[in-house]
Computed example of a mutant assay.
Amino acid sequence: MSTGVTHPNLDDWNTVCCFFRLPQLFSTCVAFSLVADMGIWRGNIGNWSMSIWCFCFAVTLIIVTVKFFDFESHFPLFWYNLSITYACYAAILCLLASVIYSITHVQFLPDGPLRDRATAATTLSCIASAFYAIDAFVWNYYWPEDIPCYVYTLPALLKVLETFVAGVIFVFLSNTSLYLHQPALEWCVAVYSICFIPTALAMLLKLGDWENILPVPFPIFQLGLTLLSVLLYISALVLWLLYQFYEEFGGQPQWSSDISCIDDLICTWIQRLAVAVLTAINLLIYVADLVYWARQVSIGTEDQPRDF
């Protein structure tokens, strides 16, 4: 990959993207401001949503700044790949914040200015998600056919999903009472971290076209990494279910056994269930990833970019 040459199509789209990034900045900034001004009515879900909007605003501002000062000319293709990947994550994050904030918080607010403010923030978050999605997917029509783009391949999509689901799991695990009382559950938390870090590293290697620095071919590296992740996630899913939902292991099998669930929609038992479901989902994604890389190793090829 050439790191010092740009392509006219990429330059054209980078200019067009400015018209999408300004609404991204505006919607995330205003959504954050509206909820921040709600005081004690923000709630924990409001604080979590604010952190997402603040993160998206900050990273988008960095991207705009890099474009304004033409810093991306020093590493154009890596920067464009990274920008598309970020847009994918931001679209999913803003959509997730919109859904969770509206379902678990906004609808329980009393009618009046506070609820109107929260509703407006949710709407702006949806708008931001739409603009990020446009930013991510319309790149495909400007990306030159002769230059590989990792983001538009099946393994890249799987990696995005794996890291995203793991990130949501970490949000629920911020409640340390879910696992600190049991070493087996602490192992589950370790599994999520062990699998997340190398998955993110593999994405970074591919985005920067640095996979040649590995001592083994990249498909074999990915196959071994994904197989390890599948085995670890199986252990995490089994242990989490046993120690959270079976009385023999100190778990709570029924929602009604958690008194806090009477008054709290996102009570501890629901959080335990959410982590179990997300663990199962990520395991399935890793299995799909394993099948993909097993196929690539067996036939000695790798899907070309823009395969979907």
Rank of each mutant, 00 (worst) to 15 (best):
V30M: 09
V30E: 09
A31L: 01
D37S: 15
I45H: 02
N47K: 07
C54Y: 12
C56F: 01
V59C: 04
T60G: 04
I62H: 12
K67C: 12
D70H: 14
F71W: 15
F71V: 07
Y86E: 09
A91N: 03
S98R: 03
S98P: 00
V99R: 01
S102T: 12
Q107N: 06
D111V: 12
R115G: 02
R117T: 15
L124T: 00
L124N: 05
I127K: 02
F131G: 02
F137P: 08
Y141I: 11
W143S: 04
D146C: 07
I147R: 14
Y152N: 08
T153K: 10
E162S: 11
F170I: 01
L173P: 00
L173T: 05
S174V: 05
S177R: 07
W187R: 15
A190D: 09
L201S: 12
M203K: 03
M203F: 12
N212I: 12
N212A: 14
I213K: 08
Q222D: 10
G224W: 01
A236F: 10
V238L: 08
L239E: 13
E248C: 06
Q252A: 09
D258I: 00
C261A: 00
A274C: 09
V277D: 04
V277Y: 08
L283D: 05
A294R: 06
R295L: 15
